[in-house]
Design a protein around this nucleic acid. Structure first.
Lengths: 106, 106
DNA sequence: AAACTATTTGGCTATTATACCAAATACGAC
DNA sequence: GTCGTATTTGGTATAATAGCCAAATAGTTT
């Protein structure tokens, strides 16, 4: 595999990796309903302000969300909304997995 | 956020996390063209046999691929092929990101 | 300008992930 | 059964990630 290909797969994997964390995935899904400010996320998750901020930054670096400061608050929104289209298939993976486990137990 | 919801997002994130590694993503995409045995992957990537095997195991644990032993070889194939549908959007994220970077540089 | 609020950054530690090597296992050929 | 090949497993060193705290920054209010 050549260097260019490696870099491309690294870049693509980084996008998926950014979504590969429960908190970040949840936040991304929340954003599909519209923009949120950091404080709204902090209220709903039991986590430190700095933790939430860092997670949002990872999503931003990945190119999934963008932020805008208005007054004291920073609002985040999805930059490329299609990123959540894949979730129905992720759920299909989970059902298939659950099914296998049930079959296994029989 | 309640415990059930947390567990669901953990499960969904784990699927995405499994694809969030260059080597694993590449292998998954290869499998979209048909099954492959471990040795075929090893030939194409510059990595140890055990490394490849472990990556495939992570994809298997995530429920993305399944394996079948035939003779000396173990063949892997996609269990839920739709999982690669999202790749066009991942590429859209990358183009959008690239575009931002170019605008930024102006 | 001082006080207050929202957010980010830096530092630290604990946990997890990655990759290699060596050893173990599974299977087929002889 | 012994040998050779394909794959997995265990061990270990290194690197990356996550989450908390404290400090820094940015904007608002008074």
């Amino acid at each position: 595999m050549d260097k260019k290909t490696k870099e491309l797969y690294k870049a693509k994997a980084d996008v998926l990796k950014a979504l590969g964390h429960p908190t970040r995935l949840w936040m991304a899904e929340q954003l599909s309903e519209g923009e949120r400010c950091v404080c709204e996320f902090v209220k709903e998750i039991d986590a430190d302000f700095s933790t939430v901020s860092k997670h949002l930054n990872i999503l931003k670096q990945a190119g999934i969300v963008e932020d805008e400061k208005r007054g004291l608050n920073v609002y985040y929104k999805l930059k490329v909304p299609c990123i959540l289209n894949s979730m129905s298939c992720v759920e299909a993976v989970l059902s298939a997995k659950l099914k296998s486990q049930i079959d296994m137990a029989k």
